[in-house]
Design a protein around this nucleic acid. Sequence first.
DNA 1: TCAGCTATGTGGACGCTGTCCACGTTGCTA
DNA 2: TAGCAACGTGGACAGCGTCCACATAGCTGA
Lengths: 206, 206
Amino acid sequence: MREGLIAAGLELARAGGPDAVVLREATRIVGVVPNAAYRHFADRDELLAAVCEAAMARLGDRMAAEVARVPGERGDGDADAAFGRMAAVGMAYLEFAREEPGLFATAYALPDQHPYAVPVGVTGPDASPLGQLRAGLDELVEVGLLDAGRRAGIEFPVWSTVHGLAVLLGQGPLRGAPEQDRRMLTDRVLGFIGEGLLTAAAAPDA
Amino acid sequence: MREGLIAAGLELARAGGPDAVVLREATRIVGVVPNAAYRHFADRDELLAAVCEAAMARLGDRMAAEVARVPGERGDGDADAAFGRMAAVGMAYLEFAREEPGLFATAYALPDQHPYAVPVGVTGPDASPLGQLRAGLDELVEVGLLDAGRRAGIEFPVWSTVHGLAVLLGQGPLRGAPEQDRRMLTDRVLGFIGEGLLTAAAAPDA
DNA sequence: TCAGCTATGTGGACGCTGTCCACGTTGCTA
DNA sequence: TAGCAACGTGGACAGCGTCCACATAGCTGA
């Protein structure tokens, strides 16, 4: 039933973002009285936190699926494939934000009392969006597309840039932009990252 | 009284972000009955929209003030000053987000029904944050720090990057990071922008 | 001068929300 | 078999956004 409430909350979040995750409605979907939720969550924020985690996992899944579609395997030294996987990481992030704005917003709406677990210093890849970005960057170094000396910490500028675009386009001032403008903005931003990232004259065709 | 409600809403937003802008509380601060607000705003969202606009104006003011502190004047051809103003634009944005997280979040929390006015195609500078960024970039071109051919549309990658960092640090997964990490992240991100922006070997000391 | 209109604030109510308390019920355990 | 822990129920409360009917004040036009 705990899972049922989270699933219900996820549907609400999908349709209306984090504010739409209303405890009573979630219990109504599950077919139970509002107070029953308090056997599984201390309060609405704890339910929301669980839903946020689930939404973040969805984002991670989407990214992993998109990366898996790129031919070849990690570590085979194929520069084109490595570049392709890096591009897939960024594109999947932006596509998820575009196609599931409610879930994307919810993924980043963890209540203040529930801290995120983002080890800034640690660099190991994992299933989280940041972890997948790190894996992609590591591979870029392996195949020689990214200077090893510039690798440390570079995930944060890259993340910031893509995340900023996703937010500006999805919920921010750019949200009303027509499709044509959206595409242009996306191209420019991804191009900017590419320039800042890749060793000069090493970039495959974007 | 309309202004009074907006001012009250601004205080609430400062303390607790857009969700804290509750209509009844605002009227209580002004010393009036809840329904009185409906003489000036169609509903709570319209009040919130006005508060958001005001918060965005605060951000613009802060940026303008910070830019004005840089010695010299726009258009005098001083490359150091131009670079300093560009840096001031970015730093002011990040400082505002850090010092006034509630207002910063509110500035970007305009309700869905109230569209932002951001002309993507237009390039003229104005008092808005984006306008000030554009002015800074234009000046960079004037003094030769930025290739004229790379100017068009470059404001969006830059904006995205700075905005993304502000969001990740302020409300996102990085919000719990200790001061030392915050500074490192900020340096890296601003450095990344500098690399992507400035004509090679033209960058003054950051 | 006075009738009437418009703008603005008041009072009371409704349904919705999150949350608390006291109460049943079920099923396992000693 | 007695008791206990887990879980769902029912009823209540305050706070919220919002609607309706009402009062009042100030200006306008005859």
